[in-house]
């Protein structure tokens, strides 16, 4: 196969960027999308050019490192698939493919297709955990967890933190990512003590990071390689509203002067 690529090249965070055209020749349909880029990069280097920078690591769809906009679609045309698991057989000979980085204020470009997703880590820092210091845990079977709760919790926990939801959202909202973590922990008995505090803090951080709000476009769910449901966004909103309403009661009722 012969493919024309239009790739976003940007030398550094503050450098201007633009789409640059490359020819990918001898592309095998069995190649993964990133292997196709590897081959293009090898050729670029042989010509003395600087290769295209893109994030990747596991190449099996689980680490969440990879991810680019492929023809305007986050992670490309195949549903429920990361960029690294997309194969060239999804394209046809002679195609032109536009490749861009995730775009959001909260995800500044570092170089070419590589962006900084540190905002996601900071959202987790704000409350995306259960405070259970090592050593104090009781037996794992002490608290039974209904299978249904464990299963939905796992559905949410499957998030790989790739950022495609933000990239695909017309509002650049991180609602799907944030809600998935709130749901993962909030659905389990172990997550109850911090449930509402967690919702408040994580949403506040999401706003601080300059993500947009959710107006339920639903694009995130479609782009998500783990097909995480926007149902979790509703759940987050519910927890958040409840949390905001009850948080103050605690303060005023607590009698701290």
């Amino acid at each position: 196969m012969q493919i024309t690529l239009k790739v976003w090249r940007q030398a550094g965070p503050d450098a201007p960027g633009s789409l640059v055209e490359y020819q990918a020749t001898d592309v095998s349909p069995e190649m993964s999308f990133l292997e196709m880029l590897d081959v293009v990069n090898e050729r670029l280097m042989q010509k003395g050019d600087v290769p295209i920078a893109f994030d990747h690591d596991c190449r099996e769809g689980i680490c969440g490192s990879c991810g680019v906009m492929i023809d305007g679609v986050a992670h490309g045309p195949m549903k429920g698939t990361t960029t690294c698991q997309l194969h060239m057989r999804s394209f046809t000979d002679g195609d032109t493919i536009v490749i861009e980085p995730w775009r959001a204020k909260a995800f500044p470009v570092i170089k070419d297709l590589v962006v900084n997703r540190g905002a996601f880590d900071r959202i987790i820092q704000a409350g995306g955990y259960i405070s259970a210091a090592t050593g104090g845990a009781q037996d794992g079977n002490m608290i039974p967890v209904p299978k249904a709760a464990a299963d939905s919790s796992m559905d949410a926990a499957a998030c790989i933190g790739c950022g495609a939801c933000v990239a695909a959202c017309p509002n650049a909202s991180a609602s799907l990512f944030t809600s998935a973590k709130i749901a993962h922990l909030g659905l389990l008995p172990q997550g109850q003590p911090e449930r509402y505090r967690r919702a408040l803090k994580m949403v506040a951080q999401m706003d601080i990071e300059d993500f947009g709000g959710c107006t339920l476009f639903g694009e995130c769910q479609e782009a998500c390689p783990k097909e995480i449901s926007i149902d979790f966004i509703s759940r987050m909103n519910r927890d958040f509203v409840y949390a905001s309403a009850t948080a103050v009661e605690q303060k005023s009722g607590g009698g701290h002067g």
């Binding site: 259960i130 259970a132 845990a137 794992g140 079977n141 209904p146 299978k147 464990a150 389990l188 172990q190």
Partner: peptide
């Protein structure tokens, strides 16, 4: 054995039986 306890406490969604046990 302590590892499993610790991970459960942290919210690792291990597979469960219908009765709620691991």
């Amino acid at each position: 054995v302590n590892i499993i306890d610790q991970c459960v406490a942290q919210g690792v969604p291990f597979a469960r039986e219908y009765g709620g046990l691991l």
